[in-house]
Design a protein around this nucleic acid. Structure first.
Lengths: 203, 203
DNA sequence: ATCTGACTAACGAACGGTCGTTCGTGTACT
DNA sequence: AGTACACGAACGACCGTTCGTTAGTCAGAT
């Protein structure tokens, strides 16, 4: 085999392949030899570049988490709540759509991290959720939103966003930006009823 | 060991334990000996009651899928769209909340089924989604809903619902029915803006 | 009342295979 | 000469599963 690349470049290739395999087959369903084969290597050769399988998982999950946080950091905190939430939603979806494999690993396989790393991820996830909740709470305070419980509303929004990695198809007919906009709109305006009723609840 | 139970009861116990383990640790991360240990058995003993590991997974996933369909069947198709969708949402959440383990397996591990069984699940899932989409489309037609794209709206709603298995805590402070109602309301009315604007789009 | 034979279900041992990983070696490049 | 990197072989552990055996239970015959 010809000597083909410098060290850091190779590591990046491994991470990319691992992201694809973990994302589609799942972490525990992917073997190291299988990963090596995707890179035309022999399994044992991987260990010149990485520490082990879990470090690989951690690198991917950490990268995804950082991407989410970085994208949300681009949204100014002093924006009016509705516009702020819209930007947060767009940023979130953009990360998922543009790094689908890593997002899949992030949502599916973070539980398989070691206890300590899992704890760290939970903390970072909670801090991230706070931004959404704060935007919603601010929106309720200034009258642009009207929800029963901001915590539940936060869960609704983030659940709707997070599950998208399961069905989003980059090869599909819809442009991701367009899709994200439609998605965000539906979420923001919701299924807007004519006046108020329409639900079975006693008003 | 004392002879303790009749045959069908034992199988049910195994399914229950498998649901809990697959749901929390994941299908591939759970060993048959580990499952046996949870039942105070020895691994090899399991095979008097089941065909194999995948049959176990299939039984759980199939049961969950059937529960979803059965719950949706209880909702009359001739209800007005908004009320119908509300009932569909409540039914869906009720299945998730009342069978959290099986729901987790259903959403996480169905991909690990054999090709044929996976195909079947996809077909059933699509048929199920149709009910939600039809309710939304009907609601758009009769003016009670107003969305850009019914297909996207369907994905938003079902994503928001499905992801709930990740955060719902049966031991938490919130009553499941109450939570489901708040959740459904937020979804139905959405984050209702005062008039129309509030988003960044040129309206 | 006791014996008998069929049956259920749990067992220990072992199967071939795969897992993640280590190590010593070879080789092409700098 | 030194180094970066891929290799084959092998490690111990665990995987899902099979198999022959044993212990306990029950029905019916004696």
């Amino acid at each position: 085999m010809t000597r083909e690349a410098l060290r850091p470049g190779r590591r990046e290739e491994i991470l990319k392949a691992a992201g694809e395999l973990f994302g589609t087959r799942g972490y525990h369903a992917t073997g190291m030899r299988e990963l090596a084969q995707a890179l035309e290597l022999r399994g044992s050769s991987l260990y010149a570049h990485i520490e082990g399988k879990e470090e690989l998982l951690w690198a991917i999950v950490d990268r995804a988490a950082t991407a989410f946080t970085a994208a949300a950091d681009e949204v100014p905190n002093d924006l009016p709540p509705a516009g702020r939430l819209e930007r947060l939603i767009a940023a979130h979806l953009n990360v998922i759509f543009s790094q689908l494999d890593h997002a899949a690993v992030f949502f599916q396989d973070w539980v398989h991290l070691s206890t300590e790393r899992r704890r760290e991820m939970i903390a970072r996830r909670d801090a991230y959720q706070q931004r959404f909740r704060r935007a919603i709470e601010d929106g309720v305070a200034d009258g642009s939103f009207q929800v029963d419980d901001p915590r539940v509303a936060t869960l609704v929004v983030l659940s709707a966003l997070n599950f998208s990695y399961q069905w989003y198809d980059p090869a599909g007919p819809l442009d991701p930006d367009q899709l994200a906009r439609a998605y965000a709109r539906t979420l923001l305006e919701g299924l807007r009823s004519r006046h108020l009723g329409a639900t079975g609840g006693k008003e």
